[in-house]
Amino acid sequence: MLNKTIPKILITGATGQVGRKTINFLLSNKEIELVAAVRSPEKAAAFTAKGIATVILDFDDESTHLTALKDIDRILIVTGYTVDMLRQSKALLDNAKEAGVKHVVHLGACGRDDTTVAHWAWHQLIERYIEWSGFSYTHLRPETFMQNVLSYGGKRAIENGVIHAYVEGARLSWVDVDDVAQVAALALAYPEVHGGQTYRLGYDAITFDEMAGLMTSIVGKPFYYEPLSPEIFLQQMKDSGAEMAYMGCVYDHWKRYAAGTIPGADDTFDNFFDITGKQPVKWIDFIEKHKAEFDY
């Protein structure tokens, strides 16, 4: 009898929104072995309690890479919000190549192939490096996360029914993080189906005024949109000590959203059912799901 080797999947960003939810989608799959990448033994405890193996991996400490990548077949790469994502991704991919990783699922950002929004373009450069390195790959390009309306940058985005954003009256394309994680899980579990694909993930396009109207109707209390100047965001990021090479790009893209100069800002896609066999979450569904959190 031949021994069947079960593919081993490493999830980076395991404590974050997408990584954590991707793990949840994969937990019941007995045809794979899950490994969560964490930066410290303390962060491993929650995964160990669920019977999930962990490894120590620090994007900035290349000495941790090869040990963490030993015997890994597939990897989900989720980087943080700094310009260092470029250097970190290259180093990790180089080491993944040396370790024999076969399939890479990369969490990127919004945008058409010709985007000039800086931090979106950085992700596309990483996509090209993945391809150039010879990996089987699935590129994920989620539009704006619906969860950003629950909180953004550690702060509530809605206070007493008032929605604040930095994009004037722009219509944005949105996606539920749960749907992103579901696609990531399938791409990791079935690379023979999803290899070589770039999945743009955005399934509902609305303005913040329209969002306020939906919330008023569903929650049963008044909601209003009050646009803020992108300058306020920029100052908040400076005051918080955020990494400004990245946040300066975010500031610039808020300005471009507000001015209507981002082509395809409201692009939506019909690929979710083909990928998952399910319908994507729309704003009506999301507000219903989080009704208690939006209430005030």
Rank of each mutant, 00 (worst) to 15 (best):
D60W: 00
K8G: 00
E143F: 10
D94H: 12
K289T: 13
R200E: 03
A68G: 02
L150H: 04
Q236F: 04
R74P: 05
V183F: 11
R87K: 12
A212Y: 12
G169P: 00
Y137W: 11
D58S: 13
W174I: 03
A157H: 04
F208R: 06
T198D: 02
G248Y: 06
E226K: 15
Q182H: 13
D94R: 11
P7T: 03
L107G: 10
G248L: 04
K97E: 02
Y81N: 11
D176A: 14
W122M: 14
K255P: 00
A109D: 13
Y296E: 08
S133E: 12
I284S: 12
K8R: 13
D60H: 04
N271H: 03
G80P: 05
E293H: 07
G195N: 15
M215Y: 03
A170P: 06
E293L: 14
R156N: 15
N29E: 10
Y166C: 08
H139F: 13
G241F: 08
E293I: 05
F135K: 01
W254R: 07
Y225H: 15
L66K: 15
A91G: 09
L188I: 05
K221T: 15
V167K: 07
G80S: 13
D266P: 00
K221M: 14
A292S: 12
G196H: 11
D60L: 07
V193F: 01
E33Q: 13
I6P: 01
V281P: 03
I262K: 07
F294K: 04
E243Y: 02
V250Q: 01
N95D: 15
T198V: 14
G248H: 05
R87H: 09
L234P: 00
D178C: 02
L93T: 07
T5Y: 04
R39Y: 00
D267Y: 05
P142S: 11
A242S: 15
P230I: 02
V18R: 02
G153L: 00
L10D: 00
L150P: 10
V219D: 12
I287C: 05
V219Q: 00
K278L: 11
Q197C: 10
L86R: 14
V250L: 15
I32Y: 01
S173A: 15
G161A: 09
K102L: 01
